[in-house]
Nucleic acid binder design. Structure first.
Length: 151
DNA sequence: GCCAACGTTGGC
DNA sequence: GCCAACGTTGGC
């Protein structure tokens, strides 16, 4: 099993939105970065665990966890002309962007702030805490996962 | 709102 | 394939 961190802007889609979604699940769509795309397409597998991170907001931090329930399928929004994620260069036979579906697992009573994460020496390898990082999907090692869960 | 860091685009 | 210009991300 592998571990991941997904960023989301809570004004757009928060951990509560995930929890309150039908069946507490959602298609993780709209990722438009090739490095993140490759992970969604090739690496992220059913039953993998995911930290949900709130970005570009007041309370930056990890706010809960989710589980991958369906792996690697074409992101449907790339084919939808009414979607802001529509990509005219993508075709059904040659999709450019991929998604996974995740299910809510837990919401932390108190989020783990970015400041806190940056203060933990063992988490220095986490891409999230490095300057200029822009990956919206990133791998988390088992050690990092356990460390964060025990904060 | 600012701006550093990074990714993408497109001319050559 | 290089790289300047541009666009976006995202913390502060």
């Amino acid at each position: 099993m592998n571990y991941w961190l997904f960023k989301t802007e809570p004004d757009d889609f928060s951990i509560d939105d995930l929890k309150n979604a039908p069946n507490s699940q959602t298609v993780w769509d709209g990722v438009r970065n090739y490095q993140a795309r490759n992970m969604l397409r090739d690496k992220i597998k059913k039953d993998d665990k995911v930290f949900i991170y709130h970005s570009s907001c007041k309370a930056l931090g990890i706010v809960g966890t989710a589980t991958v329930i369906q792996e690697s399928f074409p992101d449907p929004t790339q084919f939808d002309p009414t979607s802001k994620y529509f990509d005219p260069k993508a075709t059904e036979s040659n999709p450019r962007w991929f998604s996974v579906e995740i299910s809510f697992h837990s919401k932390f009573d108190v989020g783990i702030s970015l400041t806190k994460l940056k203060s933990v020496v063992k988490l220095a390898t986490l891409p999230l805490v490095s300057k200029g990082n822009r990956l919206s999907i990133m791998p988390v090692s088992k050690n990092e996962w356990d460390t964060i869960n025990n904060l």
